[in-house]
Computed example of a mutant assay.
Amino acid sequence: MKQLLVFVLFASLFCWLMFSPIYKHVLVIRQALLQQEADYLLEIGASGRYGYIDGDMVAESRDRLARYGFNAPMLEYAVTSTTGAEGDNASAPLPRGTGIQLRITYPYDNLLNIDRLIGLEPPSGDARIGGGGMKMSEYVP
């Protein structure tokens, strides 16, 4: 009985050691892709040509991330500004010097459930990974 218990514990530890780095790698890649997309949207949206990040830009971003395997409807975008004005209104671009803030989040999607094998509790179901930042608008009317 003791040998069976040792075998089961060893087998679960072995599975975790084999597969955990793969899942961690996927998590790191997802977070990096979210941050890269946030940086790209901020660079475009805060440029002198736009001064906003509107729904069309967000839709194109969802399509780009979906090509990497993200589930597009599960992506959440939050666009704000440092002054409280709408950062996603194309009819009222933010003037130069106003900060545009963007946050893109995505759920962990049960990615870390394998950690249960060694007794670690995975993130809750509503926990999300994300990327974001802020860039000053360069739009001059």
Results as ranks from 00 to 15, higher is better:
135 K>P: 11
112 L>D: 08
84 G>C: 06
54 D>P: 09
54 D>F: 14
101 Q>N: 13
31 Q>I: 00
11 A>E: 11
130 G>R: 01
60 E>A: 03
126 D>Q: 15
99 G>P: 04
82 T>C: 05
42 L>V: 01
49 R>C: 06
51 G>W: 01
135 K>G: 02
8 V>G: 02
112 L>P: 14
102 L>D: 02
92 A>H: 15
69 G>M: 04
40 Y>Q: 02
79 V>N: 03
128 R>N: 11
1 M>K: 08
135 K>E: 13
14 F>L: 10
76 E>A: 06
29 I>D: 12
110 N>Y: 13
118 I>Q: 08
26 V>E: 14
136 M>V: 12
133 G>H: 08
121 E>D: 12
104 I>C: 06
22 I>N: 02
60 E>M: 07
49 R>L: 13
117 L>F: 11
1 M>A: 11
61 S>E: 01
57 M>R: 11
69 G>R: 08
129 I>W: 09
27 L>Q: 08
137 S>E: 05
62 R>N: 05
119 G>A: 00
27 L>V: 03
63 D>I: 03
33 L>V: 00
107 P>S: 03
50 Y>C: 15
33 L>Q: 04
137 S>D: 00
73 P>A: 10
97 G>H: 04
140 V>D: 07
117 L>R: 04
124 S>T: 09
14 F>A: 14
33 L>P: 00
134 M>V: 13
62 R>A: 05
79 V>L: 03
70 F>P: 10
72 A>K: 09
97 G>D: 11
86 E>Y: 04
135 K>W: 08
103 R>S: 13
16 W>N: 00
110 N>M: 05
24 K>M: 08
59 A>D: 12
101 Q>C: 08
51 G>Q: 01
40 Y>T: 10
125 G>H: 15
40 Y>W: 00
108 Y>Q: 09
66 A>D: 10
50 Y>Q: 14
127 A>E: 13
42 L>S: 12
130 G>M: 07
20 S>W: 15
105 T>C: 09
83 T>R: 05
107 P>H: 07
52 Y>T: 00
141 P>M: 05
38 A>Q: 05
47 S>N: 10
14 F>E: 12
14 F>D: 10
117 L>A: 13
133 G>I: 09
106 Y>H: 02
93 P>L: 02
38 A>F: 03
10 F>N: 09
77 Y>D: 09
44 I>W: 09
68 Y>D: 13
65 L>S: 07
78 A>R: 10
42 L>C: 04
71 N>P: 04
69 G>F: 11
74 M>H: 01
95 P>N: 08
48 G>I: 14
102 L>W: 02
47 S>H: 05
20 S>T: 04
